[in-house]
Write a protein that binds this DNA or RNA. Sequence first.
DNA 1: CAGTGGTCTAGACCACGCT
DNA 2: GCGTGGTCTAGACCACTGT
Lengths: 260, 260
Amino acid sequence: MAPPRDETPRYRQIADELRARITTGTLPAGAPLPTEVELMEQWGVARGTVREAISLLRAEGLITTARHRGSHVRPRWPVRRLGVDRYKVETAQRDGQPAGKATSFTKDLGIGWDAYTLDKDFTEVPADEQLGELLQVDAGTPLLRRHFVFRSHGVPQQISISYLLLAMVSGTPVADPANEPWPGGNIAQLATLGVTVDQVREQVRTRMPTPDEARTLGIGDSVPVLTITRTMLAGGRPVEAAVDIVLPGDRVELDYVIDL
Amino acid sequence: MAPPRDETPRYRQIADELRARITTGTLPAGAPLPTEVELMEQWGVARGTVREAISLLRAEGLITTARHRGSHVRPRWPVRRLGVDRYKVETAQRDGQPAGKATSFTKDLGIGWDAYTLDKDFTEVPADEQLGELLQVDAGTPLLRRHFVFRSHGVPQQISISYLLLAMVSGTPVADPANEPWPGGNIAQLATLGVTVDQVREQVRTRMPTPDEARTLGIGDSVPVLTITRTMLAGGRPVEAAVDIVLPGDRVELDYVIDL
DNA sequence: CAGTGGTCTAGACCACGCT
DNA sequence: GCGTGGTCTAGACCACTGT
């Protein structure tokens, strides 16, 4: 009953054909794919075979599938650039008026990403081993944990979990969530405490999102994320550590300039 | 016939249970998962349901599946760090003896990645629009295209396609593939032509690999890749552009330090 | 040869969005 | 209420790996 074993599996042939239509633009961004039933008829295969093909394309990030509404060609998002100079700009602003909202997030927003909202969640936690190492303190040292979800135009753009030494910020305006978003961002914030950040280290990795992250960022669970572990240092001493900044991989580009 | 619609789908429950066993270490790296038939019996479901669960885990990069040999917990690879100072080190070496093989690739190799081999493929191509913009030349300008596949211990670690202005390198040793790998790497290479690279720009993105890249890098096609577009500048003038450096996302970390 | 995953079929019921 | 994708069943043949 199984059809002739010509060469490549049927479901792969179907996926190949659809992929070609997408990449050549015959199926433009946003266009609906044929329904499963249509594909069954066109190719003369069972539904499972069609679904296998579609799930391949979904895993490649080429399409999205919405329940009851079919699969559509995934539109390309404008790519948001996160430049290195975002930190330098903030530094420059530190001495002048902290006008506008220039967190390291909002600074990055190019065209079209000017308005934004935050979810904030501040708690106090003891340092675990990894955080202790990053911040060069003993495990158990009390930290202020700040969990942010940045959104612009309602679209989630970044998840970040950042840690500050509680002894450094306790009782200051920095420890008060009500003051977020803080004009000038993290670095301006620390400057009000007399801490001058002079070096930022970013460790960049990629991985697939957890189901939770995919939901929060509004991406398919087949779109990879960029993660950054960021350490801010003042005079060689770590003062802030963001262990897991999570960015949607389909619309972010990190831009680094290295002077030799 | 369909079983009770309690809440989460059966295939998801199965995946969740297996995922938990993996992350807690009950199923350690390299351990085999139960076979499909075993899972069918243990959960009392059809094979399709079991396969759905397994394909979920595969998409998350937690397991690999080999034909006729079952699924196994994917071992964690040592993470290779690509630090910013790799370029600075090369600069320092330029004036001294170019001892050893210190390309920007080999410099990055920490413990265990000392021996390596190259695939090289040099051709001459005209600049397209993107390359023209990166190198600040007109489209159509002749370029030397160098395609490398770096391997260490037989394991592919990096694919890169790099472009140099043909007018700059034509007839020089740099244009001769036989001279690769070049001691000291790209920057040392350009130095022999009197070109002093003083700035490197890297644009980092992530995406899923093409089937081709997955095969070349020896990763599953569900492991994301990091891509870098790198421009080297000398006195503000771009002298080299690498449009698509592709790195396996499961074993690479990019490390940037930003001085303010 | 037994057992594995790869592929495929031909049905089924469901919840939900749309018209 | 019709059509969609989501989920599931119960079979089947295949190629290849191991013993």
